[in-house]
Each structure stands twice: as structure tokens, then as C-alpha cells.
């Protein structure tokens, strides 16, 4: 500081008005930190790249037709994904509708019907807190409530209900955003025609918000198919050699099979696990692409 003031007093007025003497140093510092920040971005992207390349090189060799047609096996070269693949599809087919109805219903209640009172605040706060509860705790709930108290056993439906509750907060929040994006003018136009609240919701609000709601639901479902811990808790089997026949059947899903293979000491099983991961990631990629496609294709700009 002292140095600067000395320079300023000794300089001529023109020098005083020209660039401050510490500017080069400050600009150098700015460039340095810019590089540091950019490095952090590159580091993150690099990690993603390493992860993906590593998994592909590990697993690509094990991807063949057998992988999809065989059940799990004690021999790595015969091990397949048939049961978990079908199990995951069952799980999505059950979790999707249940969580969609509950989540969108809750969102419609909060956005279109609820009056701003304490009860509404309670529901809203509760939902944001539920979103932060670790998935393994949902597993404990599922184990106690669905598997034991409601005697569903270690069945598909017990797993689907647990998963539905787990992703419920995500669907509620994204559906609320989609509903809120519908302009008030459209609702007013409907009400001004003599439409009732439900007619307005069903014929104006929902059609306008359905792309956003679907996008949110698909993203939530893609979270659900990657979840492992809650299903381990409710006792999805890790070795299963039959396909589920009804919602009361025992089952396994992709991440659980991958977990099982990862836990084996043999290197060969790790390669099959990597192959399973590739299949799982491709499924997620497809779902996310559909979600993005829906958002871009149908999302209206009001």
C-alpha cells in the first residue's frame, strides 16, 4: 500500500491517470485462476471419460448374445443377464405408473387446489425433506412396511412400492415446475368460458404441462433403475434362475446382479459386471435421450 501511494504522489498527472502499476500483476493473477478453474472443469470431464473408457474396455469383450439369453451362472463365461434384465423392465413397468399417479396427483393438489395455509406448507416442506433421505432408509421402510407388515414378501410389488416412494419427491417437484410454467392467462381463459376447476386442469393445464411432467418422470425412473441399496434391503435376490410371473414373484434387477458379480473375487466376473454396467448405462442413456427429446420437441414456449 505504502509503495503505491508513493508512486502516485511522485508521478505526473498523466502517469497517475494511466493504468495502475499493480494492474499487470492483477491481470496475471486473473489468468492464473482462470486456468485453475478451467482445470477443475477438465478434471471432472476427464474423470467421466476415464470411467467410461475403463468400463467399456473391461466389459466389451463379454457382450454377446449369451449375455442376454442366459441366467446367472457359477461360470463367468456362461453368466447372463436374462433374469435381471426382465426384472428391471418389470420394476419400471410397476414403478412408473405408481409413482406417476402419486407424484402428479400430489403436484396437482399443491399447485391447483391447495390454499396457502400451514397444511400446504407442511406437505411442501415434507417433500423437500423426503428428497434428502438416504435411499437405504427407504429400503428399511420397504422391508418393514411392505415385506413384513403388509406380507408382500420379497416380491416385485414390494420393491416397486419402495422405489415409488423413493422417487416420489423428484416427480412431485418436477411436475410442480411443469404445472407452474402454464401461464395464468390460459387458465383464466378457460375459467372465463365457464369451465370448472377440474375441466380447466384436465383440458388446459395438463395438456400444456405434460411434456415437462413426462420428462421429469422419465428422469426419476432412470434414477430408480440404477438404485441398488433399497432393493437389497427388501431382499431382491442376487442369484435367480427364473423369470418373474406376477407382481408377487421374487426377482432381481440389473444393479443387484452387477453388485453380485462385483463382489466375486474372480477377475472374470468383474468383466461380466462391466458388461452388465454397459447394458445398464445404455438403458439410462436411451431413457435420458427420450426425456431430452420430449422436452425439446413438445415443450412449448409460452
Amino acid at each position: 500500500m505504502k509503495e503505491v501511494s508513493q508512486e502516485n504522489t511522485s508521478g505526473t498527472p498523466t502517469e497517475y491517470l494511466s493504468a495502475p502499476s499493480n494492474l499487470p500483476k492483477r491481470e496475471w493473477k486473473n489468468r492464473l485462476f482462470r486456468t485453475i478453474f478451467a482445470t477443475a472443469v477438465i478434471f471432472s470431464l476427464l474423470m467421466l471419460l476415464i470411467l467410461i473408457i475403463r468400463i467399456i474396455t473391461q466389459g466389451i469383450g463379454s457382450i454377446d448374445w449369451q449375455l442376454f439369453t442366459n441366467f446367472a451362472s457359477r461360470h463367468p463365461d456362461e453368466a447372463g443377464l436374462k433374469a435381471p434384465l426382465i426384472g428391471t423392465i418389470w420394476m419400471m413397468a410397476l414403478t412408473g405408473p405408481i409413482s406417476f399417479v402419486l407424484g402428479v396427483g400430489t403436484a396437482i393438489y399443491l399447485e391447483e387446489y391447495a390454499k396457502p395455509n400451514r397444511f400446504t406448507t407442511l406437505i411442501q416442506t415434507n417433500i423437500s425433506n423426503l428428497a434428502g433421505v438416504p435411499s437405504v432408509v427407504f429400503g428399511l421402510l420397504g422391508l418393514t412396511l411392505f415385506v413384513r407388515e403388509l406380507s408382500m414378501g420379497r416380491s416385485l410389488i414390494a420393491g416397486a412400492l419402495t422405489m415409488s416412494l423413493l422417487i416420489l419427491p423428484i416427480i412431485v417437484v418436477s411436475s410442480q415446475e411443469a404445472l407452474r410454467a402454464v401461464p395464468a392467462e390460459l387458465k383464466q381463459a378457460s375459467y372465463a368460458m365457464g369451465a370448472t376447476t377440474w375441466q380447466t386442469i384436465f383440458k388446459v393445464v395438463l395438456p400444456a404441462s405434460v411434456p415437462g411432467i413426462l420428462t421429469g418422470t422419465i428422469l426419476a425412473l432412470s434414477r430408480a433403475i440404477g438404485e441398488t441399496a433399497p432393493l437389497i434391503m427388501i431382499g431382491a435376490l442376487t442369484y435367480i434362475a427364473f423369470l418373474p410371473e406376477s407382481i408377487m414373484s421374487q426377482f432381481t434387477v440389473m444393479p443387484i446382479q452387477i453388485f453380485n458379480w462385483t463382489n466375486r473375487p474372480q477377475e472374470e466376473f468383474h468383466m461380466v459386471a462391466a458388461a452388465g454396467i454397459i447394458v445398464l448405462l445404455v438403458m439410462l442413456l436411451v431413457m435420458n435421450s427420450i426425456a431430452v427429446w420430449i422436452r425439446n420437441k413438445f415443450q412449448r414456449r409460452f
Partner: peptide, 15 residues
């Protein structure tokens, strides 16, 4: 509202 129609400030057709 069935008997009283309304036209708004901003045109607001349904999408």
C-alpha cells in the same frame, strides 16, 4: 361465466 364471455388484454388462445 357461460353467459358472460371475456376477452383479455393479451390474446390467450390455447396451444
Amino acid at each position: 361465466r357461460t353467459k358472460v364471455g371475456m376477452v383479455f388484454q393479451q390474446p390467450n388462445p390455447f396451444p
